[in-house]
């Protein structure tokens, strides 16, 4: 009897450790549903500004004060590091002919929702080049004492994507293959939005 109770306690302990290692199963769906207007607005603002002059933004630290801003010129990428509260950031944006006010608003919106990284990513359907917006989000629910921090990577396609019965996005040009973006297999949030949970935000 005593032996059985030890085994039971052991199993319960093991289960609780395993449970603490995983993030909430519906995290992304719930997170997206709660924040859909904000996420879509960030995506749309980024796409609009990117079309004018390409760039990407990365928050380097958990404090969300220092960013790494990638200015994409014709043949060279300039990656500069800024404190967003210092004038050097606005000055550089203006010097590189970006809409400084709009970019700063985008940075503030990203900060509010703890969006760590936003970029335009190229991918291929068959041999056709396409673009999508990828953003990574931090959230307390994805922190784990044992496994460390994970990030929710959201991918916004321009058009609906095929998916299998497990909700995993498939390659439109070869539906036997599972679609990968930057090495991530994507699960479906909706027809045009996929997600992955990863230890790295890009």
């Amino acid at each position: 009897m005593k032996k059985n109770s030890y085994i039971l306690t052991g199993i319960c302990g093991l289960l609780s450790i395993l449970a603490s290692c995983s993030y909430p199963k519906n995290f992304t769906t719930d997170f997206y549903a709660r924040n859909e207007p904000r996420l879509e607005a960030i995506k749309d603002d980024f796409s609009r500004l990117y079309a004018q002059h390409s760039f990407s933004i990365l928050f380097e630290e958990k404090t969300f004060t220092n960013i790494s801003f990638e200015f994409n010129e014709d043949s060279v990428k300039y990656i500069y590091h800024f404190n967003i509260n210092e004038p050097a950031f606005s000055d550089s944006l203006k010097a590189h002919r970006y809409n400084a006010a709009a970019v700063k608003k985008l940075v503030d919106d990203m900060r509010t929702i703890q969006c760590t990284w936003i970029a335009n990513v190229d991918y291929y359907e068959g041999f056709q080049a396409r673009k999508l917006v990828q953003m990574s989000v931090r959230n307390k629910a994805l922190n784990n004492k044992l496994k460390g921090e994970s990030y929710c990577i959201l991918v916004f396609f321009e058009r609906p994507q095929p998916f299998n019965n497990k909700g995993i996005f498939l390659d439109r040009s070869d539906r036997k293959r599972r679609r990968q973006i930057n090495g991530n297999l994507l699960k479906r949030v909706n027809d045009k939005v996929g997600y992955a949970i990863n230890k790295q935000y890009r």
Binding site: D122, Y123, Y124, F127, A129, R177, Q180
Partner: peptide, 9 residues
């Protein structure tokens, strides 16, 4: 090789 960006082409 697939899903490697322009290396696919």
């Amino acid at each position: 090789l697939r899903y490697k960006g322009s290396l696919d082409l």
